[in-house]
Design a binder for these strands. Structure first.
Length: 863
RNA sequence: GCCCGGGUGGCGGAAUUGGUAGACGCGUCGGAUUCAAAAUCCGAUGGCAGCAAUGUCUUAAGGGUUCGAGUCCCUUCCCGGGUACCA
C-alpha cells in the first residue's frame, strides 16, 4: 500500500507555514522585487468554488518560483466584502451584513489555507474594515477636491426590486445583472465621477501594457474615441439658430440630404413648425416613455417625424429637411447628425423608409451591389473634394470648414461619466455633508465616516437609501460654522474598494496615507495580475482611472497599476450527454432545438458513441448532445473543492487544475483527470521512498550517471521555461516524464532527487516540503535556490534524423553526435537505407535538403 | 451585423524560426500480481489494408505557396466571448 498520505502531510505543513510565517513579505528592499496579485474574491456564502483555485494556483506557482529565484515577493490576498448579497440577506433575516461578511471571510480564509497558497497572511485587507474604507473615503475626497466628483440630477437605472440604482454596466438587456430584475429609467440626484476627463490617457496608456490584446481592445471600444468634425447647420427662417452635429465623415457633407435630431434635443421645440407640432409632440412623448431597452428592441424599423424645418447645408447652400428620430441618441456627440444615406447604413435605411433623397459621394467599385457604401474610394458629387480619397477629403473639408467658420475638427468619446452612488446600506459612506443644500467635504481628520447602526436595511418609505433611517447620524453640524448639516445617505458602489486595494497591501498598517510612499516606490507596479475576464472593462478601467488620479496627486509613482495581466479561463462542469425525447420517442438533438414538449434524458458515456462528426446513442443514428455546461447549483454539476481535497489532497487539486490545459482557456472538469495526477504524485513518492510502513528513504549517495543527469537537466530546462511563460500544463507534463524515466533506474541519487523536489514544489508544495524534510533538511524549502540547467549535460551521444524522399518519411537514422552536422556523412548514410534506396532506384536526385539536427529530404524525379 | 479568440485521436490537450503530427494525462483493450478485489506494475492504443516489413489517409472543408504546411496566404463553414443604431 502507498504511504503517501496527503491529508496528514498537508495539514501539518500548512500549520508549519502559518506558525513560522514562512511567507511573510521581506521588509528589506535590497533584492529585486516581484509583486504577484490575484483579483481578491467577494466572500460569498457558498464558499470557494473550483474556479477560484485556478487563478490562485497559477499565481502561487509564480510566487513560489520567484522566491526561489531570489526575488522579494509580495503575494497578498484580501476581501472585496461590500456588496448586495449580504445586504439582501440582512433584509430577509435581520442579520447584520457585518456578521454575515465576517463569517464568510473566515470560511474563505480557511479554504484558501487548506489549498496551501503562500499568501502573506499579515497583509490581508478587507474593504469593509473602517481602517480600510477610511482611505477609500480619503481618495474620494481627492477626487472631490479636484472637481472630478460632482452631483447631478440624471435619469438613472432604477431597479425597484433591488431598491437601488445600477450603473449602465450592471444592466444587461434591461435587467439587473444581479438577480435579473427589471430596470426602469428614473431621474435622481447622484454622485458622478468624471472618468471622461481621463479618457485620452486611459486609451493611450493601454499600448504599453502586457495585457491580452482582446482585453485592451475591449477597453478601447468602451472608451470609443472617434475623430471627426463638428459642423454648424443654419436653420432656414430662424436667423442665428444653428444645429451643431458631430460626424466622423465630414468628407461626405455634400451627400447630407437631411438632418436628424434626437427627440430630446433642445432645439426641437423651437424649430418645429405649427403644422408638424402635433406629430412631433406625440413622437417625443412616446420616445420618452420607452426605456433604453425598448428603444433597442425596435431597431428593426426606423421611425421618425419631420419637424417642418429646413437647414442649410453649409457646403453647397442647399436646403435639407430636419427630422427627429430615436435612432439618434441625445447623449452621444451633439445629439444631432447630418444624415448621409449614401455612406451610412442607418441613414440609408431611414431614407428608404421615408423616401428621402440619396446622393453617393464616394464612388463604389463597379461590382458593388449593396446599399450604403462605407469603404474607401474617390469622392464624387462633392465639388472641390472630387477625386480625393477619404483621408485627403477629410483633411481638405475640415480646412474649408474652419476657414469659413462653420465647423472644426472634433473628437468624441463613447465613454460616459461614472455613476458612483448606490442606494444601499452595505457600502462605503460618502465623506460628504450637505450644508444649505450644497455638498461639502468632511475634513480628513474626521475620517472614517463609519456606517451607522440601523435595524432595517430596506430603503425608507419615501424611497430614500437605508442610511436615511439613521436620523441622528444624518443630522449633524458643519464643524467649521456650527450650522446644521445633513450627511450624504448614498453609499459608494462595490467598485470603490477594489479600485485601490493593490496599494493597501503594500503597507497595510500605514496610517499617514493610503500607501507608504517609500514602499510604494519599491513594490509598484504589480508585475502580474491574474483574474477573470469578466472584469476586462469595469474593474480594470475604474482601477486604472483612480490610479491615474492618485498619480496626479503624487501618491503613486507609476502611470499604470498592472503591468502584466492574465485571465484564467472558466472551468466548466463534467461533459454531459443528453438525449432528447418527444412523445415517448427519442429524437436527434438538432431536431429538438426549438421544439416544444421535449424531454431531456441524461445518458452515461457508455450509452454513447462517436459517429463521424457527432455523438449518437449506441447502435443508432440518434444524435446526442455532448456538452460541458457552466457549473451551477440548479444544474447540480458544481464541483466543491473541499470534496476534492478530502479525497485526493490539495496538491492533487492544484496540480490537476494546472494540468487541464492552458490557463487562459475554458475547459471542462474531469474527476478522472484528478485521479491521474494523484497517481503521478504517488509514483513520485515511491521514487524516493520505499513501500514500507515508514516510507524509508530509497535515495542513495551514488554519483549520478550521464543518463540521469540528462533526464534531470531536460526537466529543469522545460519546467523553468514553462513557468516563465506560464505554460503550467506542459511543465507538469515534463515532471511526469522525469518520473516515468526515473522509475526505470536502478538507483535514485540524492543529487538528482533534490533538484526534482524543488521543481515539483511550486506546483505541489506540501508533498515537496515533506520529501525535502525526509531527505534530511530542516525547515522549509521555500527559499532554496532554484536549480539551473547545464546544456552540456543534455546533449545525446547520437542524433536521430528522419529521412524523407519527396517530403515523405522513409527511414530514421541515428548519427553519432560528432558527425551530426556533417552534411555529406548524414546524406551518405541516409541514401544507404534500404527503405530509402527503394525510392531512389530509377530516379534522379534533383535536390538534397539538409537541416542540421532536424531532417534530411531527398527530392527526386523519375528517370 | 461588427470586433476578438478558437476548430488537432473516444476525451483534456502537446508540437522551436515551416522540419518525424498526436508529447503528457484520461479512457479502452491485453497481461502480471491476488483466493478474489482494490491498489500497483508491464504492454498495446488515430483510421484503413496487411501475419509482418510496410503502405496509405488524417490537424473543420476547399484551394494556393514550398523540397516540406497543424503552423504562411485566400475562400467557406462551425463553435466560444465581447458589443450593438455611438454618427
Amino acid at each position: 500500500m502507498s504511504t503517501y498520505n496527503p491529508s496528514e502531510i498537508e495539514t501539518r505543513w500548512q500549520k508549519y507555514w502559518l506558525e513560522n510565517k514562512t511567507f511573510r513579505t521581506p521588509e528589506d528592499h535590497s533584492k529585486p522585487k516581484y509583486y504577484v496579485l490575484d483579483m481578491f474574491p467577494y466572500p460569498s456564502g457558498s464558499g470557494l468554488h473550483v474556479g477560484h483555485p485556478e487563478g490562485y494556483t497559477a499565481t502561487d506557482i509564480i510566487a513560489r518560483y520567484k522566491r526561489m529565484k531570489g526575488y522579494n515577493v509580495l503575494h497578498p490576498i484580501g476581501w472585496d466584502a461590500f456588496g448586495l448579497p449580504a445586504e439582501q440577506y440582512a433584509v430577509k433575516t435581520g442579520t447584520h451584513p457585518r456578521d454575515t461578511t465576517e463569517k464568510n471571510i473566515n470560511r474563505f480564509r480557511e479554504q484558501l489555507q487548506m489549498l496551501g497558497f503562500s499568501y502573506d497572511w499579515d497583509r490581508e485587507v478587507n474593504t469593509t474594515d473602517p481602517d480600510y474604507y477610511k482611505w477609500t473615503q480619503w481618495i474620494f475626497l481627492q477626487l472631490f477636491n479636484k472637481g472630478l466628483a460632482y452631483e447631478d440630477e440624471q435619469p438613472v437605472n432604477w431597479c425597484p426590486q433591488l431598491g437601488t440604482v445600477l450603473a449602465n454596466e450592471e444592466v444587461i438587456d434591461g435587467k439587473s445583472e444581479v438577480g435579473g430584475f427589471p430596470v426602469i429609467r428614473k431621474p435622481m440626484r447622484q454622485w458622478v465621477l468624471k472618468i471622461t476627463e481621463y479618457a485620452d490617457r486611459l486609451l493611450a496608456d493601454l499600448d504599453d501594457l502586457e495585457w491580452p490584446e482582446s482585453t485592451k481592445e475591449m477597453q478601447r471600444n468602451w472608451i470609443g474615441k472617434s475623430i471627426g468634425a463638428e459642423i454648424d447647420f443654419q436653420i432656414d427662417k430662424h436667423e442665428g439658430t444653428e444645429i451643431r452635429v458631430f460626424t466622423t465623415r465630414p468628407d461626405t457633407i455634400f451627400g447630407a440630404t437631411y438632418m436628424v435630431l434626437a427627440p430630446e434635443h433642445h432645439l426641437v421645440n423651437k424649430i418645429t413648425t405649427d403644422e408638424q407640432r402635433d406629430k412631433v409632440e406625440k413622437y417625443r412623448e412616446e420616445a420618452a416613455k420607452k426605456s433604453d431597452l425598448e428603444r433597442q428592441e425596435l431597431t428593426k424599423e426606423k421611425s421618425g417625424v419631420f419637424t417642418g424645418a429646413y437647414a442649410i447645408n453649409p457646403a453647397n447652400g442647399k436646403e435639407i429637411p430636419v427630422w427627429i428620430a430615436d435612432y439618434v441618441l441625445a447623449h452621444y456627440g451633439t445629439g444631432a447628425i447630418m444624415a448621409v444615406p449614401g455612406q451610412d447604413e442607418r441613414d440609408w435605411e431611414f431614407a428608404e423608409t421615408f423616401d428621402l433623397p440619396i446622393i453617393r459621394t464616394v464612388q463604389p467599385p463597379e461590382d458593388f451591389d449593396g446599399k450604403a457604401y462605407t469603404e474607401d474610394g474617390p469622392a464624387i458629387n462633392s465639388d472641390f473634394l472630387n477625386g480625393l480619397d477619404i483621408t485627403a477629403a477629410k483633411k481638405k473639408i475640415i480646412e474649408w470648414l474652419e476657414e469659413n467658420g462653420v465647423g472644426k475638427k472634433s473628437i468624441n468619446f463613447k465613454l460616459r461619466d461614472w455613476l458612483f452612488s448606490r442606494q444601499r446600506y452595505w457600502g462605503e459612506p460618502f465623506p460628504i455633508i450637505h450644508v444649505d443644500g450644497k455638498p461639502k467635504a468632511v475634513s480628513e481628520e474626521d475620517l472614517p465616516v463609519t456606517l451607522p447602526e440601523i435595524d432595517d436595511f430596506q430603503p425608507t418609505e419615501s424611497g430614500e437609501p437605508p442610511l436615511a433611517r439613521a436620523k441622528d447620524w444624518v443630522k449633524t453640524t458643519d464643524p467649521e460654522t456650527g450650522n446644521p448639516a445633513l450627511r450624504e445617505t448614498n453609499t459608494m458602489p462595490q467598485w470603490a474598494g477594489s479600485c485601490w486595494y493593490y496599494l493597501r497591501y503594500i503597507s497595510p498598517e500605514f496610517d499617514g496615507a493610503p500607501v507608504d510612499k517609500g514602499d510604494e516606490n519599491y513594490w509598484m507596479p504589480v508585475d502580474l495580475y491574474v483574474g477573470g475576464s469578466e472584469h476586462s472593462v469595469l474593474h480594470l478601467l475604474y482601477a486604472r482611472f483612480w490610479h491615474k488620479v492618485l498619480y496626479d496627486c503624487g501618491l503613486v509613482s507609476t502611470k499604470e497599476p498592472f503591468k502584466k495581466l492574465v485571465h484564467q479561463g472558466m472551468i466548466l462542469g463534467e461533459v454531459e450527454y443528453t438525449a432528447y425525447q418527444k412523445d415517448g420517442k427519442m429524437i436527434s438533438a438538432d431536431e429538438a432545438a426549438g421544439e416544444s414538449g421535449v424531454t431531456r434524458v441524461p445518458l452515461s458515456d457508455s450509452d454513447v458513441e462517436k459517429k463521424g462528426e457527432r455523438f449518437v446513442m449506441k447502435g443508432t443514428e440518434i444524435t446526442v448532445e455532448a456538452k460541458a455546461h457552466k457549473m451551477s447549483k440548479s444544474r447540480g454539476n458544481v464541483i466543491n473543492p473541499d470534496d476534492v481535497v478530502d479525497r485526493y489532497g490539495a496538491d492533487s487539486l492544484r496540480l490537476y487544475e494546472m494540468f487541464m490545459g492552458p490557463l487562459e482557456q475554458v475547459k471542462p472538469w474531469s474527476t478522472k483527470g484528478v485521479e491521474g495526477v494523484n497517481r503521478f504524485l504517488n509514483r513520485a513518492w515511491r521514487l524516493l521512498f520505499n513501500n514500507d510502513e515508514k516510507s524509508s528513504l530509497k535515495v542513495t549517495d551514488s554519483e549520478p550517471n550521464a543518463e540521469q543527469l540528462k533526464v534531470l537537466h531536460e526537466a529543469i530546462k522545460k519546467v523553468t521555461d514553462d513557468i516563465e511563460e506560464m505554460r503550467f500544463n506542459t511543465a507538469i507534463s515534463a515532471l511526469m516524464i522525469f518520473v516515468n524515466e526515473a522509475n526505470q533506474w536502478d538507483s535514485m541519487p540524492k543529487s538528482v532527487a533534490e533538484p526534482f523536489v524543488i521543481l515539483l514544489s511550486p506546483f505541489a508544495p506540501h508533498i515537496a516540503e515533506e520529501m525535502w524534510s525526509r531527505l534530511g533538511h530542516g525547515g522549509s524549502l521555500a527559499y532554496e535556490k532554484w536549480p539551473e540547467y547545464d546544456e552540456k549535460l543534455m546533449v545525446s551521444k547520437t542524433v536521430e534524423y528522419p529521412v524523407q524522399v519527396n517530403g515523405k518519411v522513409r527511414a530514421n537514422i541515428e548519427v553519432p553526435a560528432d558527425k551530426a552536422k556533417d552534411k555529406e556523412f548524414v546524406i551518405g548514410l541516409a541514401k544507404q537505407q534500404q527503405n530509402v534506396e527503394k525510392y531512389l532506384d530509377g530516379s534522379t536526385i534533383i535536390k538534397e535538403i539538409f537541416v542540421p539536427e532536424r531532417i534530411v529530404n531527398l527530392v527526386v524525379k523519375p528517370g
